[in-house]
Write a protein that binds this DNA or RNA. Structure first.
Lengths: 113, 113
DNA sequence: ATTAATACCTAAATTAATTAGGTATATTGT
DNA sequence: ACAATATACCTAATTAATTTAGGTATTAAT
């Protein structure tokens, strides 16, 4: 995803998708890549080869629903969180937060609890 | 590694090893697993199937040196950072820090830069 | 006309980590 | 004495996420 931090992002992609969608009505894939790029001033880049399969998996798992719509001659596939998706988004965010706290402790970036 | 956050840890294992060794003269594998468990009150657990191959790779990459020593009848393999290891440890920590900053921004955990 | 941007997609290969073993010694409990 | 737990190392097969490297198609810009 990003240039060198590539593998740090492993495991965070689905959380990013769920969280971004949790804050908006709906988004389409390409929009997600642009939003992440914009928010990080180009430092974090989602690859399409990772993003689209991840979206399809979240949809298959019942966390997202999709509807295709043609805008300005191009087909966009809009995704939204399902009810389960909202629940799961919150749960995944808590887990990620707890993980980051632990990581910061181990890496001595903040005092031990 | 941890129970559910398992895949969040992907990509962070080698940074954890380098950072822990950067703060100490030397450590052996089992000691690293115990130190991480201790620091996180058991919330983060390194599996041996991930740890030992990671140590071997870091050694093969010239970032660690190892020497085996028998203590209380058991063989311990102590690892230390090489000069390159110290440099790399610092670089990887910067990358991880930058990544975590970006992740926090994307996940709306802190105001955008 | 060509290139860049928008917008979707997939299949093969890579890679990290899990799972599930294995060996061996020391300590603790029964 | 025996079993279980803790210490301490290891690896091979499998799984799963991502990269790499394509593909299609439309619109906008040069």
């Amino acid at each position: 995803m990003s240039q060198n931090n590539a593998q740090l992002l492993k495991g965070t992609l689905s959380v990013i998708i769920l969280k971004l969608l949790g804050e908006r009505e709906r988004m389409y894939g390409y929009e997600i890549t642009q939003k992440v790029k914009e928010l990080t001033a180009g430092e974090m880049t989602l690859t399409e080869g990772a993003l689209y399969p991840a979206l399809h998996k979240l949809e298959a798992d019942g966390l997202l629903t999709a509807e295709t719509q043609v805008v300005e001659g191009r087909a966009r596939k809009y995704y939204s969180l399902t009810k389960n998706g909202h629940t799961e988004a919150a749960g995944r965010m808590s887990e990620l937060f707890a993980f980051m706290q632990n990581l910061q402790t181990v890496l001595n970036l903040k005092p031990a609890l």
